[in-house]
Design a protein around this nucleic acid. Structure first.
Lengths: 231, 231
DNA sequence: GTGGGGCGTCAAAGTGGCGTTACGCAAGAG
DNA sequence: CTCTTGCGTAACGCCACTTTGACGCCCCAC
């Protein structure tokens, strides 16, 4: 699995930092908080985050100065938060190197969308928009419909591919006949377990080292199948 | 001295377009205006601007649909303007591919600062002004609507040309039926895969050495096509 | 020991995507 | 008006994939 995207928050108000930290963490980001510009620059150098969010008004090194100094050492995307809605302030922040300026109060969904937009520019393949799933020995690209095990390319038919896709999306858990059938063939086919017998068999022939003793797709009798990604 | 930076404005309200045109022109930008999404996409292909500003609510192809279709063919920075201040609208626009979202009414200075911030990200590729794309054995001039393979001039119809243009812009990647249809025929034709069968066939007859064994346009069964530009 | 149900395998029959060809229609040129 | 050119549509054969049915194996209950 690709490692989490890192976001550095620079804000001197502890409660705001905490709210944002939990909000962003729950969306799969790795988040750290610095209390002022100095600490922010230090932490940036040590931790090398993928994106920086900073408040404009801070003690010691203010937001503007922070942006300028950060821009000298990095081109990391920066989003500035502020209560000020004056045009001159926005212009100053953007010209200091900020990529975006968001006025408080703001919604978490908007902030997340602006984060996605900024990350899209600098690390196009690393955002959650990416269609590639890596788990264990497997790599599956749901957009290109490509899949591989331990680097070996697989030539899968559409149904085989969808079946594998569901499995890599739920590694380690038991997938019932019903769930698998509904996901691949649609809700009207939840009784047709014979489809699974055939297609699981073909999938095993293509992905297992020894199809007679499967290590990836395990049978859970009377229930369904369990996917073990390896490692 | 490099030539002026080009900005395309897509807006159906003439007076707004005119105001922004004069405002941006006086700051040294080369500005053109398109009245709706269709015209915007056509003008984009011909003129290859460095940045696009679009209104969200337009007749025919709306701002969201415009963003999505533009994103298929280009990574150009896009700023969306709108009177709507709802968070869900902002999120939809940003996730449709917009880089920034500005709520009307807005100040010209702020817009200019946001334009500078967006251009800053892509400015190193300022030579992208050229409308000529060279990749592998292909050379495509989107402004002159000329294309050639290994120096051999191609006589392509408009649809054939647009199809080839999308492909040379995404060499090596899988282009789904849906994407190709949306890019060439528009979002209402994403089911008409028979169009692709016919036009891909005609394109192959014109660009492939052996159309029966294509080396440039490879078919990815059930998914779409992959363009291989050749070394 | 015997029988039944779930599971795996195989192959024939059916379905549907793809490439190809042909034709009708509309728009523009002469 | 006629001719040309490009676009949309339908039909057909080929072939890969899906569906279906048949059969054997294994486990477990009886």
């Amino acid at each position: 699995m690709t490692s989490k995207q890192r976001i550095l928050i620079v804000d001197d108000e502890p409660q705001i930092g905490r709210v944002m930290r939990t909000g962003l963490s729950s969306r799969g980001f790795d988040v750290r908080v610095a209390a002022d510009g100095e600490a922010g620059l230090d932490l940036f150098n040590d931790w090398r985050p993928d994106l920086v969010i900073t408040d404009l008004s801070m003690p010691n090194v203010g937001g503007l100065e922070f942006c300028r100094r950060l821009r000298i050492i990095s081109e990391v995307p920066v989003i500035v938060l502020s209560v000020k809605n004056e045009e001159s302030t926005k212009v100053a922040a953007l010209d200091a190197g900020a990529d975006d300026y968001v006025t408080k109060p703001f919604g978490m969904d908007e902030l997340l969308a602006r984060i996605r937009a900024s990350l899209r520019r600098t690390s196009p393949r690393a955002t959650d928009q990416s269609s590639v799933i890596k788990v264990g020995d497997f790599r599956v690209d749901s957009e290109a419909h490509e899949a591989s095990v331990n680097g070996r390319e697989l030539h899968l038919t559409p149904k085989e591919f969808e079946l594998l896709l569901i499995m890599v999306q739920h590694p380690g858990t038991v997938l019932t006949h019903r769930k698998l059938l509904a996901a691949v063939w649609g809700g009207d086919y939840t009784q047709q377990t014979e489809y699974l017998r055939v297609f699981i068999g073909q999938l095993r022939k293509k992905i297992e080292v020894d199809p007679a003793n499967p290590k990836y797709i395990l049978t859970e009798p009377w229930i369904g199948y369990r996917f073990n990604a390896g490692e």
